[in-house]
Amino acid sequence: MEEFFNKIKESFQDATLEFETINIKVDSAEWIEVHKKLRDELNLKFFSWLSAIDWDNEVSVGEAPKESVSPSFEIITCLSDLANTNLVTVSTSISKSEPNIKSLIEVYDGANWHEREAYEMFGINFENHPNLEKLYLPDGYEGNPMLKSFELISREVKPWPGEVDVEGMPEESESGESADG
């Protein structure tokens, strides 16, 4: 893992290795070139997945981020190498008001369905995609479910009844082995 990380750092200065995952942050204008370079020179031919994160300060589900962030979409792809199983994630940021990015379909064939899913869940527009249409949701569904501003109606109507922690955690006994509680 270390030597592969050093090799990546030669080409991309912005690479970080945290929690055993290498992450390369790039600009959205270089999206296609970076992927071509990773596929051809570093032999990362296995396209694992593509997805997005919605960074926002006002959330209607879950908890808001602890430090305030500037609202944006972060698009992440994950590539790997079958012979040595090296793994790399590539991320970029695009703005929320104009979510456009080039499609990766000319570099990897497998990006087809992943990009359709990101379009449907977040509303991100992928240029040059052959058929950008809905994958999961029924026809006539309005809204993009994964946005932080999309509410879960059932939770608004009736809060979850099980807010109480019913079972205690196991405690240490005298011999130091964990017993059940």
Binding site: E20, T21, E63
Partner: peptide
Amino acid sequence: GRTYVRAENPKGEMGYYIVSDGGLGPYR
């Protein structure tokens, strides 16, 4: 922090990308 963990499921490769913000549940 954020991390990607993968395993060999009977059907293939299964992985989870956890983006955590220090809360009770993941951010994404």
